[in-house]
Each structure stands twice: as structure tokens, then as C-alpha cells.
Design a protein around this nucleic acid. Structure first.
Length: 398
DNA sequence: CCAGACGTTGTT
DNA sequence: GTCTGG
DNA sequence: CCAGACGTTGTT
DNA sequence: GTCTGG
């Protein structure tokens, strides 16, 4: 599951996204961070971890994909091997259990991608919070020293079974810490704590999704296009078309309700037409989203990217060009990177920015348990919605 | 005792 | 580093 | 996770 | 289908 994400957060937004009220005691390697709409294991992402001693926390850029410290020095690091850790077995697996006492951290992203399989076809969906606030993942990190002496920090994202709402998409999902309490518990809890209560699927209804272009499957594809909603092929005869009619109406209403829509062209231009694979929920329907995506991106780029990034004309290639600079990540860069942190910090503080409501809790009507999932066995996630045969896949180009 | 592994996902 | 298997 | 390759012999 | 590379 969680093997691809969007993180275009500004570096200085990350602590707040992780519900930190104070400033980081220090930052580490943040100059390596490259905001991207298409992040995969092996990429640098900002995480928040406890400071080695004391109360504070560190804003620390690490590579996604755990490389345990006991990995052979001469071995080639494989970031895809352990980019996820099953929360159900994290206390049993030797590679992860050793990290539980002192190496927990938080990773913040705006959303992640999940591919829905339809036979041989795969359709990616972008999953995110309705109000645009970042998701906070529970994670574990470790260090590894390569044969050249470089110390590499890496982390893995904990996963759990999917929420009822996301079951149709996938049977696994990242552990999302939805409020300050849970993120505090994970980051600061004692090693003797039981994390069972927070390492669970996020069941609130403000986690939403929509289909995006399959082109983002390529790592070379980056930029706002990655999260642009695309229409899904509709499947002819459909006794539920009424639902969508209602949906559309409801969505328009919601769109009006949301104030920040002025930044979001996509919401207005793309009338969402999701059908296939969508859960047929009775009451609540998944909303339009993508609010402030562009805005986020614009403000994001400031920290480490060239000024040109502020421009809307920024392209994936622009980003790649930047990131490629450290593609080889030679150890020789490490020192310079650390030293430049101070510089980075200053730049971070210069800018003020829009809040993303990280501390707000999802709106829920208490007993909205949404027992919509009529299916208990995880193998069988097919329902009326996705039973429909696909006549033409979205990419019937050959 | 030493040697060797240490993981997830998905798919069938 | 730590657990499992032999 | 997805994308892309998936081979040998022999030659310049 | 399955393995490698990113």
C-alpha cells in the first residue's frame, strides 16, 4: 500500500502539520528536501523526531525506506524492501521492534496514492483530507553507515488494515495520526506504552479520494498534474446514476461552502464523475477536494527550490532537475548539508504563510460509525459499484 | 554455541 | 541489535 | 509501490 | 509471468 505520496509542504510547515506547537530544537539535512507531488521510497522527506536528549524535537530530512543499522556496509541499500511496517507485527519483527523504544517519528504529507486493481488495469487514486490539512503518519527511523562512512537516516511508515471507507480501494492503509493527542502519543509516549490504540485505521469520514492520471505511476511525472482529478470511464447501463446526480448537487454546495476555492481552478473545471470503484454509501458522500493544491505548491517551493518554482508554470521537469542534483547522494555532501542548516533555518523563518488547520479535528457526528461495509472478508471487496465490467479502460490506447 | 535472518505488498 | 534455527 | 525489461553470440 | 531498477 502506501508506496507513493505527495509532499509539497513547505519545510517550515511540517512541524505544525505534526501538531508541534513549538519550534524544532534544530533541523537536520533539510536542504535535501525536495517538495514533490510524486514521492517514492528512496526520496528524502521531512520527518519530526524526538531530539536525542531533552524535550525538544528535530525536523529531520530522511530517506523513505528503512535501511536497518545492521545492514551490511557493502550492501546496496534497498529502500523498497522496508518502506512499510505492519503495525500488527511491528513488535514481533526484529527489524522494527528494536526501533520502538527510541526511534519513533512522524511524517507529514498532503496525501498518498493508491492503485486500484481492475484485472490487469490499475487506476491510481489520490487520498487526502477533505480540508487539505496534511496527513501525519506514524513512522520509525534508523541509521546506517555505508562502507564510505556516510551515515544514512531512513524511515518506514506503519500500516494497518484499511478503514471501512477505503476497503474497496485497498486492504491496507498507512497509520494516520488524526489529532494532536495521537501524534503526541506516538512521538512522546513511553516505550512501555501500548500503541495499540493509535495504530489503527483512520475511520473518520474526512479522508477522501479521487482518481488521478495513471501517468503519475512514472516517477518522472511530477507536478500538480499528479493530483488533478480525472473522469473515470462510466460503464453504460447504470441503475445508480441517480446517486451521482445527487452527488453532483451536493458537491456543488460543498464547493461553495469552502472558502478557499478561489485558488483552486480544478475544483470548478473538473466536475468529478466518479463511479467505478466508489463505495455506495448511503448518507455521506466523499467530497470534492483538492482545495488549495496549487496554492500549497506555490508556497511550498520557497524553501529549497529556485524562485522559478513560485511560478505556476513550474513543471515536473523543473523539479526533477533540481532533485537530480543529489541523485548520487555522495557522502561528501553530508557535511556541507548539515552546515547549511542554519542558513536554511533563517530562510524558513523569513516567510509567513497560510495555515493549514493542522490542529483542527475532523468534523464528525459522534455516532457516525458508517457501517456501510457489508463485507467482512477482506478478500471480497467487490460490490455493485465495481462489479461493472470495464468496456474500455481509461487507457485503451495501444 | 554459531549462523543467518531480519520486510511488505500483492497475487494466485 | 536481536531473534530463530540447527 | 510501479515501470520496464525479459538474450546470446560475436564484432568493431 | 517474473525479475530488476527506481
Amino acid at each position: 500500500m502506501c508506496g507513493r505520496a505527495r509532499c509539497t509542504l513547505r519545510a517550515d510547515d511540517v512541524p505544525r502539520a505534526c501538531h508541534r506547537t513549538s519550534s524544532p530544537a534544530r533541523t537536520l539535512n533539510m536542504d535535501r528536501y525536495r517538495p514533490s507531488y510524486n514521492v517514492a521510497p528512496g526520496w528524502n522527506l521531512p520527518v519530526v523526531r524526538r531530539d536525542d536528549d531533552g524535550e525538544g524535537f528535530v525536523l529531520h530530512c530522511m530517506k523513505w525506506g528503512l535501511i536497518p543499522s545492521f545492514t551490511k556496509k557493502n550492501e546496496k541499500p534497498d529502500f523498497y524492501k522496508m518502506f512499510n511496517a505492519r503495525s500488527e507485527s511491528v513488535t514481533e519483527k526484529a527489524s522494527f521492534r528494536r526501533l520502538l523504544p527510541k526511534s519513533r517519528c512522524l511524517a507529514a504529507v498532503e496525501g498518498f496514492y493508491e492503485w486500484k486493481k481492475d484485472g490487469s488495469k490499475k487506476q491510481p487514486y489520490y487520498v487526502h483530507f477533505k480540508d487539505g490539512r496534511p496527513l501525519v503518519f506514524a513512522a520509525l527511523y534508523d541509521t546506517w553507515q555505508s562502507s564510505e562512512g556516510e551515515i544514512l537516516y531512513t524511515f518506514t511508515i506503519l500500516t494497518t488494515s484499511s478503514s471501512a471507507a477505503l476497503q474497496w480501494l485497498h486492504d491496507r492503509m498507512p497509520v494516520i495520526l488524526g489529532d494532536k493527542e495521537s501524534s503526541d502519543a506516538w512521538l512522546n509516549g513511553s516505550s512501555s506504552s501500548k500503541y495499540d490504540t493509535i495504530l489503527k485505521p483512520y475511520e473518520e469520514s474526512d479522508l477522501v479520494w479521487y482518481p488521478v492520471t495513471p501517468a503519475m505511476g512514472k516517477l518522472s511525472f511530477d507536478g500538480p498534474e499528479c493530483i488533478k482529478e480525472i473522469p473515470l470511464k462510466t460503464e453504460g447501463k447504470n441503475p445508480i446514476s441517480n446517486f451521482f446526480l445527487k452527488k453532483e448537487i451536493k458537491k456543488e454546495q460543498e464547493s461553495k461552502m469552502e472558502e478557499k476555492s478561489s485558488f483552486d481552478e480544478s475544483v470548478k473545471t473538473n466536475l468529478p464523475k466518479r463511479m467505478k470503484g466508489e463505495p455506495i454509501k448511503e448518507i455521506k458522500e466523499e467530497p470534492v477536494s483538492g482545495l488549495e493544491e496549487k496554492y500549497s505548491f506555490d508556497t511550498t517551493a520557497q524553501t529549497n527550490l529556485p524562485k522559478s518554482m513560485k511560478d505556476e508554470s513550474v513543471t515536473a521537469d523543473d523539479i526533477r532537475t533540481q532533485s537530480s542534483v543529489e541523485k548520487g547522494d555522495p557522502d561528501t555532501k553530508s557535511i556541507a548539508s548539515v552546515l547549511s542548516d542554519e542558513d536554511t533555518k533563517k530562510r524558513l523563518q523569513k516567510r509567513d504563510y497560510k495555515e493549514f488547520l493542522a490542529d483542527s479535528k475532523p468534523v464528525t457526528d459522534g455516532n457516525n460509525k458508517l457501517e456501510t461495509s457489508p463485507l467482512k472478508r477482506k478478500g471480497n471487496v467487490k460490490d455493485a459499484g465495481e462489479k461493472q465490467p470495464t468496456l474500455f479502460s481509461y487507457f485503451s490506447k495501444k
